[in-house]
Design a binder for these strands. Sequence first.
DNA 1: AAAATCGGATCTGACCTGGA
DNA 2: TCCAGGTCAGATCCGATTTT
Length: 289
Amino acid sequence: MDQDKLQLQLMRSYLENTQINMQIAHYTKVGVNWRTNNRMPNENRLYFIREGEGWIHIRGKDYSPRRGQLYLLPAGMRLSYAPVVENPLGKYWCHFSATVGDVNLFQMLELPHWIEVQDERKLEQQFEELIELSSGSQVTAPLRIKSILLDIISEYIEQSDDQLHLTAMSSTSKINSVLSYIERHLAEPMTVEELAKLVHFHPNYFLHYFKTMMGLSPIVYINKKRLDKARRLLSTTDMSVSAIADEIGLELYYFSRIFKKSVNLSPTEYRKASGKVYIDGDEVWVEGE
DNA sequence: AAAATCGGATCTGACCTGGA
DNA sequence: TCCAGGTCAGATCCGATTTT
Protein backbone atom coordinates (compact mmCIF):
# COMPACT_ATOMS: atom_id res chain seq x y z
CA MET A 1 0.00 0.00 0.00
CA ASP A 2 2.52 2.54 1.23
CA GLN A 3 5.00 0.73 -0.96
CA ASP A 4 2.90 1.64 -3.98
CA LYS A 5 2.89 5.28 -3.00
CA LEU A 6 6.64 5.22 -2.63
CA GLN A 7 7.05 3.57 -6.02
CA LEU A 8 4.90 6.24 -7.57
CA GLN A 9 6.92 9.00 -5.98
CA LEU A 10 10.16 7.46 -7.13
CA MET A 11 8.88 7.12 -10.66
CA ARG A 12 7.86 10.74 -10.59
CA SER A 13 11.29 11.69 -9.30
CA TYR A 14 12.91 9.88 -12.17
CA LEU A 15 10.64 11.44 -14.75
CA GLU A 16 11.15 14.84 -13.24
CA ASN A 17 14.88 14.48 -13.77
CA THR A 18 14.86 12.84 -17.16
CA GLN A 19 17.00 14.43 -19.84
CA ILE A 20 15.85 13.60 -23.32
CA ASN A 21 17.64 13.96 -26.64
CA MET A 22 16.79 12.72 -30.06
CA GLN A 23 19.52 11.56 -32.41
CA ILE A 24 17.61 10.86 -35.56
CA ALA A 25 14.11 10.32 -36.97
CA HIS A 26 12.95 8.97 -40.31
CA TYR A 27 10.37 7.01 -42.20
CA THR A 28 11.74 3.84 -43.76
CA LYS A 29 10.37 1.02 -45.77
CA VAL A 30 12.87 -1.60 -44.81
CA GLY A 31 14.77 -3.73 -47.29
CA VAL A 32 15.73 -7.38 -47.10
CA ASN A 33 18.92 -6.51 -45.32
CA TRP A 34 17.08 -4.89 -42.42
CA ARG A 35 18.24 -7.43 -39.92
CA THR A 36 20.40 -7.69 -36.88
CA ASN A 37 21.19 -10.45 -34.51
CA ASN A 38 21.63 -10.08 -30.79
CA ARG A 39 22.99 -6.59 -31.00
CA MET A 40 22.96 -4.29 -28.00
CA PRO A 41 22.20 -0.79 -29.23
CA ASN A 42 23.17 2.12 -27.06
CA GLU A 43 20.25 4.29 -28.05
CA ASN A 44 16.55 3.83 -27.36
CA ARG A 45 14.33 3.28 -30.37
CA LEU A 46 10.75 4.02 -31.22
CA TYR A 47 9.17 2.18 -34.15
CA PHE A 48 5.75 3.27 -35.29
CA ILE A 49 4.57 0.60 -37.68
CA ARG A 50 2.62 1.78 -40.72
CA GLU A 51 2.66 -1.22 -43.05
CA GLY A 52 4.06 -4.66 -43.70
CA GLU A 53 5.30 -7.33 -41.36
CA GLY A 54 8.46 -8.18 -39.54
CA TRP A 55 10.02 -9.94 -36.63
CA ILE A 56 11.51 -8.45 -33.49
CA HIS A 57 13.14 -10.34 -30.67
CA ILE A 58 13.97 -8.66 -27.43
CA ARG A 59 14.49 -9.99 -23.91
CA GLY A 60 13.60 -13.53 -24.78
CA LYS A 61 10.36 -12.76 -26.57
CA ASP A 62 9.27 -12.67 -30.18
CA TYR A 63 7.06 -9.96 -31.56
CA SER A 64 5.36 -9.58 -34.91
CA PRO A 65 5.02 -5.88 -35.48
CA ARG A 66 2.01 -4.78 -37.46
CA ARG A 67 0.29 -1.58 -38.46
CA GLY A 68 -0.80 0.68 -35.64
CA GLN A 69 1.67 -0.53 -33.05
CA LEU A 70 4.31 1.58 -31.42
CA TYR A 71 7.43 -0.22 -30.23
CA LEU A 72 9.76 1.02 -27.57
CA LEU A 73 13.10 -0.78 -27.69
CA PRO A 74 15.33 0.38 -24.87
CA ALA A 75 19.07 0.78 -25.18
CA GLY A 76 21.26 -1.83 -23.58
CA MET A 77 19.00 -4.81 -24.32
CA ARG A 78 19.91 -7.55 -26.76
CA LEU A 79 17.89 -6.96 -29.88
CA SER A 80 17.28 -8.96 -33.02
CA TYR A 81 15.03 -8.16 -35.93
CA ALA A 82 14.38 -9.20 -39.48
CA PRO A 83 11.89 -8.39 -42.25
CA VAL A 84 9.23 -10.60 -43.76
CA VAL A 85 10.60 -10.47 -47.26
CA GLU A 86 7.31 -10.68 -49.20
CA ASN A 87 5.80 -7.82 -47.22
CA PRO A 88 8.50 -5.65 -45.63
CA LEU A 89 7.83 -3.20 -42.83
CA GLY A 90 7.25 0.48 -43.31
CA LYS A 91 7.77 2.44 -40.13
CA TYR A 92 8.46 5.77 -38.61
CA TRP A 93 11.39 5.43 -36.29
CA CYS A 94 13.64 7.46 -34.11
CA HIS A 95 16.68 7.01 -31.92
CA PHE A 96 16.87 8.90 -28.67
CA SER A 97 18.39 8.96 -25.23
CA ALA A 98 16.42 9.42 -22.02
CA THR A 99 18.60 9.52 -18.96
CA VAL A 100 18.26 10.11 -15.27
CA GLY A 101 21.70 11.20 -14.22
CA ASP A 102 23.77 8.78 -16.23
CA VAL A 103 21.31 5.90 -16.16
CA ASN A 104 18.90 5.10 -18.94
CA LEU A 105 15.34 5.86 -17.84
CA PHE A 106 14.17 2.54 -19.24
CA GLN A 107 16.55 0.67 -17.02
CA MET A 108 14.56 2.05 -14.11
CA LEU A 109 11.04 1.84 -15.53
CA GLU A 110 9.58 -1.42 -16.69
CA LEU A 111 7.33 -0.93 -19.69
CA PRO A 112 5.79 -3.20 -22.30
CA HIS A 113 7.74 -3.31 -25.55
CA TRP A 114 4.82 -2.15 -27.61
CA ILE A 115 1.45 -0.50 -27.32
CA GLU A 116 -1.55 -0.24 -29.58
CA VAL A 117 -1.59 3.39 -30.70
CA GLN A 118 -4.83 5.18 -29.82
CA ASP A 119 -4.57 8.15 -32.12
CA GLU A 120 -2.60 7.06 -35.17
CA ARG A 121 -3.27 10.30 -37.01
CA LYS A 122 -1.74 12.35 -34.23
CA LEU A 123 1.31 10.15 -33.81
CA GLU A 124 1.89 10.21 -37.53
CA GLN A 125 1.87 13.99 -37.47
CA GLN A 126 4.23 14.00 -34.53
CA PHE A 127 6.71 11.81 -36.37
CA GLU A 128 6.42 13.92 -39.50
CA GLU A 129 7.18 16.93 -37.38
CA LEU A 130 10.16 15.24 -35.75
CA ILE A 131 11.58 14.44 -39.15
CA GLU A 132 11.00 17.95 -40.42
CA LEU A 133 12.42 19.59 -37.34
CA SER A 134 15.55 17.47 -37.30
CA SER A 135 16.40 18.46 -40.87
CA GLY A 136 15.28 22.05 -40.51
CA SER A 137 17.16 24.99 -39.10
CA GLN A 138 14.85 26.66 -36.59
CA VAL A 139 16.51 27.84 -33.41
CA THR A 140 13.78 26.27 -31.36
CA ALA A 141 13.98 22.89 -33.09
CA PRO A 142 15.75 21.19 -30.14
CA LEU A 143 13.00 22.33 -27.77
CA ARG A 144 10.20 21.33 -30.12
CA ILE A 145 11.78 17.93 -30.64
CA LYS A 146 12.09 17.37 -26.92
CA SER A 147 8.52 18.42 -26.34
CA ILE A 148 7.18 16.07 -28.99
CA LEU A 149 9.26 13.18 -27.73
CA LEU A 150 8.16 13.84 -24.17
CA ASP A 151 4.57 13.82 -25.32
CA ILE A 152 4.96 10.54 -27.16
CA ILE A 153 6.65 8.94 -24.18
CA SER A 154 4.05 10.29 -21.78
CA GLU A 155 1.31 8.78 -23.89
CA TYR A 156 3.22 5.54 -24.00
CA ILE A 157 3.64 5.41 -20.24
CA GLU A 158 0.05 6.41 -19.53
CA GLN A 159 -1.25 3.76 -21.84
CA SER A 160 0.84 1.05 -20.25
CA ASP A 161 -0.25 2.17 -16.81
CA ASP A 162 -1.16 -1.29 -15.55
CA GLN A 163 2.17 -2.73 -16.66
CA LEU A 164 4.23 0.15 -15.38
CA HIS A 165 6.57 -0.43 -12.47
CA LEU A 166 10.10 0.02 -11.28
CA THR A 167 12.55 -2.57 -12.52
CA ALA A 168 14.36 -4.89 -10.17
CA MET A 169 17.53 -3.10 -11.10
CA SER A 170 16.00 0.15 -9.99
CA SER A 171 14.47 -1.08 -6.76
CA THR A 172 17.79 -2.45 -5.61
CA SER A 173 19.73 0.41 -7.06
CA LYS A 174 21.68 2.69 -4.82
CA ILE A 175 19.85 5.86 -5.73
CA ASN A 176 16.51 4.23 -5.11
CA SER A 177 17.41 3.15 -1.62
CA VAL A 178 18.57 6.68 -0.87
CA LEU A 179 15.41 8.25 -2.24
CA SER A 180 13.13 5.94 -0.32
CA TYR A 181 15.18 6.53 2.83
CA ILE A 182 14.66 10.25 2.35
CA GLU A 183 10.92 9.80 1.86
CA ARG A 184 10.69 7.82 5.08
CA HIS A 185 12.78 10.19 7.17
CA LEU A 186 11.58 13.61 6.08
CA ALA A 187 10.60 14.47 9.64
CA GLU A 188 14.09 13.86 10.99
CA PRO A 189 17.32 15.69 10.45
CA MET A 190 19.40 13.97 7.78
CA THR A 191 23.04 14.45 6.99
CA VAL A 192 24.92 13.78 3.80
CA GLU A 193 27.16 11.49 5.77
CA GLU A 194 24.32 9.25 6.88
CA LEU A 195 22.92 9.12 3.35
CA ALA A 196 26.35 8.28 1.95
CA LYS A 197 26.65 5.43 4.43
CA LEU A 198 23.48 3.84 3.04
CA VAL A 199 25.24 3.17 -0.23
CA HIS A 200 28.76 2.86 1.18
CA PHE A 201 30.09 5.93 -0.59
CA HIS A 202 32.44 8.56 0.61
CA PRO A 203 30.37 11.68 1.40
CA ASN A 204 32.19 13.75 -1.21
CA TYR A 205 31.67 11.17 -3.86
CA PHE A 206 28.09 10.73 -2.77
CA LEU A 207 27.38 14.42 -3.35
CA HIS A 208 28.64 14.16 -6.88
CA TYR A 209 26.76 10.92 -7.46
CA PHE A 210 23.48 12.25 -6.12
CA LYS A 211 23.68 15.39 -8.14
CA THR A 212 24.31 13.64 -11.44
CA MET A 213 21.40 11.30 -10.76
CA MET A 214 18.90 13.80 -9.48
CA GLY A 215 20.05 17.13 -10.86
CA LEU A 216 19.98 18.62 -7.36
CA SER A 217 22.18 18.38 -4.33
CA PRO A 218 20.85 16.14 -1.53
CA ILE A 219 19.95 18.95 0.85
CA VAL A 220 18.19 20.96 -1.81
CA TYR A 221 16.31 17.82 -2.83
CA ILE A 222 15.36 17.01 0.75
CA ASN A 223 14.09 20.48 1.44
CA LYS A 224 12.16 20.49 -1.78
CA LYS A 225 10.44 17.30 -0.63
CA ARG A 226 9.82 18.84 2.77
CA LEU A 227 8.26 21.93 1.27
CA ASP A 228 6.11 19.81 -1.05
CA LYS A 229 4.78 18.02 1.98
CA ALA A 230 4.27 21.29 3.84
CA ARG A 231 2.27 22.71 0.95
CA ARG A 232 0.09 19.62 0.93
CA LEU A 233 -0.50 19.84 4.66
CA LEU A 234 -1.22 23.55 4.51
CA SER A 235 -3.85 23.23 1.85
CA THR A 236 -5.47 19.98 2.92
CA THR A 237 -5.39 20.11 6.72
CA ASP A 238 -5.86 22.70 9.41
CA MET A 239 -2.67 21.78 11.26
CA SER A 240 -0.93 24.77 12.76
CA VAL A 241 2.16 26.09 11.06
CA SER A 242 4.34 24.96 13.96
CA ALA A 243 2.83 21.47 13.86
CA ILE A 244 3.60 21.30 10.16
CA ALA A 245 7.14 22.55 10.72
CA ASP A 246 7.49 19.76 13.24
CA GLU A 247 6.07 17.22 10.83
CA ILE A 248 8.75 17.97 8.26
CA GLY A 249 11.58 18.23 10.74
CA LEU A 250 12.26 21.95 10.54
CA GLU A 251 12.35 24.63 13.21
CA LEU A 252 9.44 27.03 12.94
CA TYR A 253 11.48 30.13 12.15
CA TYR A 254 13.57 28.30 9.61
CA PHE A 255 10.53 26.70 8.04
CA SER A 256 8.72 29.96 7.46
CA ARG A 257 11.90 31.47 6.11
CA ILE A 258 12.64 28.86 3.47
CA PHE A 259 8.94 28.48 2.71
CA LYS A 260 8.67 32.13 1.90
CA LYS A 261 11.87 32.00 -0.07
CA SER A 262 10.57 29.24 -2.31
CA VAL A 263 6.86 30.01 -2.59
CA ASN A 264 7.00 33.78 -2.14
CA LEU A 265 4.21 33.55 0.42
CA SER A 266 4.44 32.83 4.12
CA PRO A 267 2.83 29.53 5.18
CA THR A 268 -0.37 31.17 6.43
CA GLU A 269 -0.64 33.38 3.38
CA TYR A 270 -0.24 30.27 1.28
CA ARG A 271 -2.99 28.50 3.18
CA LYS A 272 -5.34 31.40 2.65
CA ALA A 273 -4.53 31.54 -1.02
CA SER A 274 -4.77 27.82 -1.69
CA GLY A 275 -8.14 26.88 -3.04
CA LYS A 276 -8.46 30.31 -4.54
CA VAL A 277 -7.61 31.16 -8.07
CA TYR A 278 -7.26 34.55 -9.59
CA ILE A 279 -9.01 35.39 -12.80
CA ASP A 280 -8.12 38.74 -14.29
CA GLY A 281 -7.01 39.91 -10.90
CA ASP A 282 -10.25 38.90 -9.21
CA GLU A 283 -10.21 36.36 -6.47
CA VAL A 284 -12.44 33.39 -7.12
CA TRP A 285 -13.06 30.69 -4.57
CA VAL A 286 -12.95 27.14 -5.85
CA GLU A 287 -14.09 24.05 -4.04
CA GLY A 288 -11.20 21.84 -3.01
CA GLU A 289 -11.28 18.19 -3.98
C1' DA B 1 -1.34 36.40 24.89
C1' DA B 2 0.00 33.13 21.66
C1' DA B 3 1.30 32.07 17.10
C1' DA B 4 3.63 33.33 13.17
C1' DT B 5 6.94 36.06 10.64
C1' DC B 6 11.11 38.64 9.81
C1' DG B 7 15.97 40.07 10.00
C1' DG B 8 20.75 40.17 11.39
C1' DA B 9 24.77 37.86 13.11
C1' DT B 10 27.13 33.74 13.43
C1' DC B 11 28.61 29.13 12.79
C1' DT B 12 28.64 24.56 10.60
C1' DG B 13 28.59 21.45 7.21
C1' DA B 14 27.44 20.89 2.30
C1' DC B 15 29.50 21.27 -1.86
C1' DC B 16 33.16 22.07 -5.24
C1' DT B 17 37.74 21.64 -7.13
C1' DG B 18 41.76 19.34 -8.23
C1' DG B 19 44.25 15.48 -7.64
C1' DA B 20 45.25 10.41 -6.80
C1' DT C 1 35.96 5.64 -5.85
C1' DC C 2 38.43 8.33 -2.31
C1' DC C 3 40.79 12.40 -0.12
C1' DA C 4 42.21 17.35 1.48
C1' DG C 5 41.21 22.07 1.59
C1' DG C 6 38.65 26.29 0.75
C1' DT C 7 34.27 28.70 0.00
C1' DC C 8 29.69 29.76 0.59
C1' DA C 9 25.00 28.50 1.32
C1' DG C 10 22.29 26.35 4.67
C1' DA C 11 21.12 26.08 9.48
C1' DT C 12 20.74 28.03 14.03
C1' DC C 13 20.11 31.42 17.57
C1' DC C 14 17.85 35.28 19.31
C1' DG C 15 15.31 39.19 19.60
C1' DA C 16 11.95 42.40 17.42
C1' DT C 17 7.72 42.85 15.09
C1' DT C 18 3.37 41.67 13.15
C1' DT C 19 -0.86 38.97 12.92
C1' DT C 20 -4.60 36.28 15.00
